[in-house]
Design a binder for these strands. Structure first.
Lengths: 256, 256
DNA sequence: CGCGATTTGTGCGTGTCTTCACAAGCGCTT
DNA sequence: AAGCGCTTGTGAAGACACGCACAAATCGCG
């Protein structure tokens, strides 16, 4: 993990105390709070109560307060939180005060969509390079960026100080791509390929698998169906399901 | 199927036991085990030890055993797990024995990619209908499916017994789409729009926000940078940070 | 038939996350 | 200035998840 932060660009050298080590669960929620706060700011709100912000972010208000308390107290009792201040705080903690460059590898079906997804740019990330191994795709221009061959990956990643690599290749290619990203100094990887990546210590990998999400939902569908099929049998079923008419699930198949 | 296990009576070994309520964390890992198992099956393996399967899935072996024990014991001590049997078990528990139909709403940048993503079909999900509100997109054919207008959503969802709705619209439209899905009897929603959905009890929502993933990675980048920048801040930094290469060593740190 | 090698299943200690409940603090009003 | 209503911040308890370590079970072999 070679830290290739250019020494000439120090981050916010002042104000904020040393970066606290937040619970992982808190970190995962901060972006959600941030999004809700931006909505509030656009609507002209200057302060917000924990109750309000919590519902906007879809969480319990006590949890929200505890989360925010981890970054130092920036609320005013009896009033709430200053929206603008809180935005600054969260953006600082998340490291969004400096725009991070992203390299996207694999410009297939999904990669193409990611390259054109404007949600990245609007939230502080700049896709700086695209890569693919297919010679047909190399050279193609997407959103003003030319697709380069994956052989250049390590070199370009180093040159452009890529902070985050996004892998949108087939599973078979993902590990090789990850190795090249690491070799290029990248220490954060977002993996869309359905496989487990092996990386050195100090490199963070997050995995997003769309089919996995569907499978988790499928489990809950299955469970709900089996609950309605077996009414009370010693165990109290949860709620009587208010509007569960629908008749979506005729009978759950049992065989293979 | 409405049989409930009578106390004392032995379970039918062939018929599947009553659906256990698994810990949520376990459910989230089962798809990963399933993927690894399919890989093993393709390579001709008939049994697998917990150690092997655990590394293939990127988890601790004790955790894997405990997860599997929740679905009833299907391993043989001294030998391991029967790959085919375990696949059947997990697929049953996840409700994948019956193919679930998916409706995809929003055929923009991301939605287009999802419609063409073959990872869904290969893992038991069939996209049965596409919807959009843009009249220009309505009528377009993608992968053999014609995009319908979102006004038809509720009706079609009911008619086609849609099990899962996928929302890939802008945030502003997502809640309206969710309402229509619910009205059409859909009880599971996968939401790609960056907003919180409000749904009745009994409806499950999972959210995937690509920008959030990047922001979480950004936090860790920030933390890593501040650690190397401020070596002595009262806390001892983790490892002395070995050289950047050392490509393949499975001492991996699981990023989740 | 018994023994050793192997691997599962799980009890238990530990740590993390969540939630409740309430004291402390702030501003507004009188 | 004092009181009051409102909201934050947090201690404590409960719920959940994790991983170790070991007993129980199974197979293969002599």
């Amino acid at each position: 993990m070679s830290q290739h932060r250019p020494p000439g660009a120090p981050e916010r050298p002042v104000a904020v105390p040393a970066l606290p080590d937040l619970p992982e669960a808190t970190v995962a929620r901060l972006p959600e709070y941030l999004r809700a706060l931006h909505n509030l700011a656009e609507n002209g709100h200057e302060t917000v109560s924990s109750e309000w912000l919590a519902t906007a972010a879809g969480v319990n208000s006590a949890k929200l307060r505890k989360d925010l308390s981890h970054l130092g107290s920036y609320g005013t009792r009896g009033v709430g939180y200053d929206v603008a201040l809180l935005i600054d705080q969260i953006e600082y903690v998340l490291g969004l005060t400096q725009r991070r460059t992203v390299a996207l590898v694999g410009v297939g079906n999904l990669g193409h969509a990611l390259a054109g997804y404007d949600g990245f740019a609007t939230r502080g990330f700049r896709i700086a390079a695209l890569f693919d191994s297919d010679p047909v795709r190399v050279g193609e221009e997407i959103n003003g960026l030319v697709v380069r061959h994956v052989d250049e990956l390590s070199r370009v990643a180093t040159e452009e100080s890529i902070a985050i690599g996004v892998i949108a290749t087939p599973a078979a290619a993902a590990q090789r791509v990850a190795d090249r990203l690491v070799a290029g100094g990248v220490t954060s990887i977002l993996n869309f390929a359905p496989c487990v990546l092996t990386v050195p210590d100090g490199v963070d990998v997050r995995k997003v698998d769309l089919a996995v999400e569907l499978q988790i939902l499928s489990f809950h569908e299955h469970r709900k169906a089996s609950l309605t099929a077996l009414p009370a049998a010693g165990e109290a079923p949860l709620t009587p399901l208010p509007g569960s008419l629908a008749a979506t699930d005729p009978q759950e198949a049992i065989g293979t």
